[in-house]
Design a protein around this nucleic acid. Structure first.
Length: 492
RNA sequence: GGUCGGUUUGCCGAGUGGCUAGGCGCUGGUCUGCAAAACCAGUUACAGCGGUUCGAAUCCGCUACCGACCUCCA
């Protein structure tokens, strides 16, 4: 497992060597958000994980088409029979057009993603823009005999399907178990079987978002959009389909069933699922109401937050855990990430001014190799980051004169960070200059000159007073051998 | 209830049989007028019990606790 990329495939529950179906092209699809509210930490994890995958595949030389959908219709609030579309519900609450809700939260989502320095997907299709295609897939499934129409709605026939195909393979479920453990539905269900799911739902007169179809006015079921849009833009089979573990069942299971029924094959080669962010040991989610939005984190406005955190801190915090592990939120964890990231970035910023040595006491090539090895092992970003800190140690030691690198190796070290830290992990330098309550750098320099003069007179009381006053204004002073350095404190 | 997963040092979090990740914190030291920063050193854990093995955090079994999914959720 050295120079080949291995990815954990949920289908096999094993790490498998990744090869695209049609090299050098890679089709990557990830389930994106339903835009009826602000993105929270969990959405950030989804986006960060697949952004890194996208970047890494590109780094390996693949030509990747990355598709991330936007769900703007068809997502039911409760049970499929009695549900109300989430977007519509929000629109009613806010007395606006459904598409106004979609647009508002989509814009905000994009703002958040930009702050996290994520590369926009190649294509970001919306469910509402693919109604015709979704209807076509419903017809195919009907023609194949795996669905039935009832009162203007169309349902997938799970029982029929599972006679000849394994339903539940991805999520490790058995149809019998599912049947035994499904709650009986309230009222009179139209569905033949509780396991059946909606492909097309009839819309009554009051429904805001609906489209004409041969079954009457209605709207598509949620699972349909991903089957349609992933295959439309990435073909069959497509290489990687990702999403949160909470989508494994029923969403992705239904997708596979739809694909097999409609296209004759499962369509997806690798299924990747990232784990959840937890808070107090519980999953952070919209339904539990225990989520913290990205906006709240960036501004520090949530009651559980002790301070605001920069987008890069959030990203670093996410990348310090492996994507298949749960990641627990806490102020302490976030602060630890922030400090670590600042130390890392500080060292990296200093590479350019390191003196070249006559020989190299450490092996940059070896470190670089290990970075690749970490990523090849199912995107082990925590290990990659630990290697990047190894380099930090070197940089600091070179500054202290206790290690050395020849010019060429210094250049390689710089390239190492350009590649792994900036290009693949997609982290950015945090510029502290925009904080500090509008004090100009020149003014600070002037004051520091006065302080240096005071120090030279041995008037330490004055020097300390100046330092304390500047500190209150958010300016941190560091006396070095070469002179006094300063920076705006992070929470100024 | 069913299925699946987890329990790692003060905190976060890697690690699938021997080579004691990493970050944060803490302690001591170097440097400094003092701080800060930086560096050095220390902080050595794997829920419990039993088994396999020359050797287990890592494999097997049991127990306890936690969680995810089974309804929408990244």
């Amino acid at each position: 497992m050295t120079n080949k990329l291995f990815i954990y495939n949920t289908l096999s529950r094993n790490k498998e060597q990744f090869e695209p179906a049609n090299p050098p092209f890679v089709g990557l699809y990830a389930c994106g958000p339903t835009v009826y509210g602000d993105a929270h930490l969990g959405h950030a994890r989804q986006a960060v994980v697949f952004d890194v995958l996208y970047r890494y595949l590109s780094h390996l030389g693949y030509r990747v088409r990355y598709v991330r959908n936007i769900t703007d219709v068809g997502h039911l609030e409760h049970d499929a029979d009695e549900g109300e579309d989430k977007i519509i519900k929000k629109a009613r609450l806010e007395s606006v057009e459904p598409m106004e809700v979609v647009q508002r939260y989509l814009n905000r989502y994009h703002d958040n993603m930009r702050l996290l320095n994520l590369i926009p997907p190649s294509i970001e299709p919306m469910a509402s823009g693919h109604i015709i295609e979704q209807q076509q897939l419903v017809e195919k499934i009907l023609d194949a005999g795996y669905a039935y129409e009832k009162n203007g709605s169309v349902y997938f026939d799970v029982a029929r399907y599972s006679e000849s195909h394994p339903y539940g393979r991805l999520s490790g479920r058995k149809t019998d178990d599912l049947l035994a453990n499904t709650r009986p539905l309230d009222g009179q269900s139209e569905k033949n079987n509780p396991l059946d799911f909606a492909l097309w739902k009839k819309a009554d007169a009051s429904h805001l978002m609906k489209w004409p179809s041969r079954w009457g006015e209605g709207y598509p079921g949620w699972h349909l959009e991903c089957s349609v849009m992933s295959t439309k833009y990435l073909g069959i089979p497509l290489d990687i389909h990702g999403g949160g573990m909470d989508l494994l069942f029923p969403h992705h299971e239904c997708e596979i069933a739809q694909n097999v029924a409609g296209f004759g094959e499962p369509a997806v080669r690798f299924w990747m699922h990232h784990n959840m962010i937890t808070i107090n040991g519980q999953k952070m989610g919209r339904s539990l109401g225990n989520f913290i939005t990205l906006e709240e984190i960036f501004t520090g406005s949530h009651r559980l937050l002790e301070q605001a955190h920069a987008p890069m801190t959030i990203k670093f915090y996410i990348l310090q855990a492996h994507y298949r592990s749960t990641l627990d939120f806490s102020n302490q964890a976030l602060q630890a990430s922030e400090k670590g990231l600042l130390r890392l970035l500080k060292a990296v910023a200093a590479i350019g001014s390191l003196p070249a040595g006559r020989d190299s006491s450490v092996d940059v090539d070896e470190l670089s190799r290990r970075c690749g090895e970490a990523m090849n092992d199912d995107l082990n970003t925590p290990i990659l980051i630990s290697h990047l800190f190894e380099g930090v140690k070197w940089i600091n030691e070179i500054q202290e004169g206790r290690a050395s690198l020849v010019q060429e190796d210094l250049k390689k070290l710089k390239e190492l960070y350009d590649t792994w830290l900036f290009s693949i992990l997609g982290l950015q330098m945090i510029s502290p200059g925009d904080s500090g309550k509008g004090i100009s750098g020149e003014l600070i320099e002037l004051i520091l000159q006065l302080r240096t003069e005071a120090k030279n007179r041995k008037d330490f009381e004055a020097a300390d007073r100046i330092r304390a006053a500047l500190n209150d204004l958010g300016v941190v002073i560091m006396d070095r051998k070469e002179g006094t350095d300063w920076e705006f404190s992070k929470d100024a």
